[in-house]
Design a binder for these strands. Structure first.
Lengths: 237, 237
DNA sequence: CTGTGTCAACTAACATGTTAGCATTCCAAA
DNA sequence: TTTGGAATGCTAACATGTTAGTTGACACAG
């Protein structure tokens, strides 16, 4: 296998690692992960351990561990005895991630709809009101944050802590690709309406309705990603 | 956090790594994983890097990487600056793994039922006939192998290669705990009947029926694990 | 007997030296 | 011009030395 050097800048844009906490390996991991997801390290970028070491002021050990973990998540490809680079997008991986996410989240929302407590319901409706507030203020970023929060709430209400982690792992490629999309006018409002239906189904303790509503909600994004393979073929393999 | 040394044998039963292929880290990983899943390293066992290094004749690097990977799978706990040990069972983790597996496999079997080709169907029915043969011969091990194979086939027919990996990861704790159960007489026959229903649903291209049949099939095992927490409390935390 | 502080032994985490495999380059021969 | 192969420069993989934090035993005071 080969590693054609698509580009090799002498400087890489990496967040400062001093502000993070935890072990060095953990901090390096987060720094690289953030940079990859923000497309500061675009797909195809070759990762030079030595360069990263110098720039962050650490030795190769924590950098190696960080890259190993990123490879486990599918964000980095390691070619034995040769090199590592940021993975390109692959439409089939995106579809697989979306399928996985859908499988997990549909099961989660059905379980929550069946077993929810009053407390959980009021936390969800409170979150929904926050979303409405963000919409009124045209606060796109805030809406995105609360959107994400709603999904996390649903996962946490299942009582299964690792579910959110795994769903996020599957969703990772989708999220990375989403950075390339411009926000569509009116999409937030549309998403809000879909959220309302989901939470209404949870309120009514109707698992099947919750599943249907969630499925509809999730299917939106992937279809919007399809055109990317035409407009940015350099990012796919 | 503490690491009370539940037991510290001078010798650990580890498979020879000479017969395996791939990098040293990979071989050490497989050796440890096999030993843990076979309960040769029971829950609570403290892993001494140095000892493992000496016994396998390798340095600490590949052993460290192997343990890191096992920690990522949840088979090993690492206490910072202190030590590592084989994780004990936790009924909530088992439930979570089963939930995850169910979510993924129900989605998979529904997709396969909806989209299956004639070729795929005949591969499944061929597998089913193999199962019947094993039953006739009272070949429990063979039946278990073909059982597993059937689930792998279903995953692979979705066209999503990582699905099987993730479902297996979720199922890991369940499988480990299953080692403790004695095979129940007649269970294989029962499982075979359930498999027949699943494949019949796939033949009929009936996703909903396939889901129901698969759900019934999967739910069997977890309930059988429940009593373990009473009979072997030392393995739980 | 009980709680507390010191200290020794152990560990993971980190740093760094070494080895070996792959790819690219470039030059020479056909 | 093309091909093939030796040399070079890169890398991951592995080995090993160093550092610093945690545990747990033991002595000692209350």
């Amino acid at each position: 296998m080969s590693l054609p050097n698509e580009q090799d800048p002498d400087e890489i844009a990496l967040p400062d690692i001093g502000k993070l906490t935890g072990s060095l390996a953990q901090r390096v991991y987060e720094a690289l992960r953030t940079a990859i997801l923000a497309m500061d390290l675009p797909p195809g970028t070759i990762l030079r351990k030595q360069l990263i070491c110098e720039q962050l002021g650490v030795s190769r050990s924590p950098v190696t561990e960080a890259i190993t973990r990123l490879a486990g998540e599918g964000l980095v490809e390691v070619v034995p005895q040769s090199g590592s680079r940021v993975t390109k997008f692959s439409m089939s991986e995106i579809h697989e991630g979306a399928f996985l996410r859908e499988a997990i989240e549909l099961a989660a929302v059905a379980k929550v709809a069946a077993e929810r407590t009053e407390e959980q319901l009021s936390e969800l409706t409170r979150n929904l009101r926050l979303q409405a507030l963000c919409l009124e203020d045209n606060d796109e970023a805030g809406f995105y944050r609360e959107d994400q929060r709603m999904h996390e709430l649903i996962f946490s209400f299942t009582g299964y802590p690792k579910l959110n982690t795994l769903a996020a792992a599957g969703w990772l490629q989708v999220n990375r690709a989403r950075q390339l999309l411009l926000p569509i006018r009116g999409r937030a409002q549309e998403a809000y309406e879909e959220h309302k239906v989901i939470i209404e189904a949870i309120r009514a303790r109707d698992p099947e309705k919750a599943r249907r509503a969630m499925r509809k909600h999730l299917s939106r994004l992937v279809t919007r990603l399809e055109p990317l393979i035409e407009s940015r073929p350099d990012l796919f393999d």
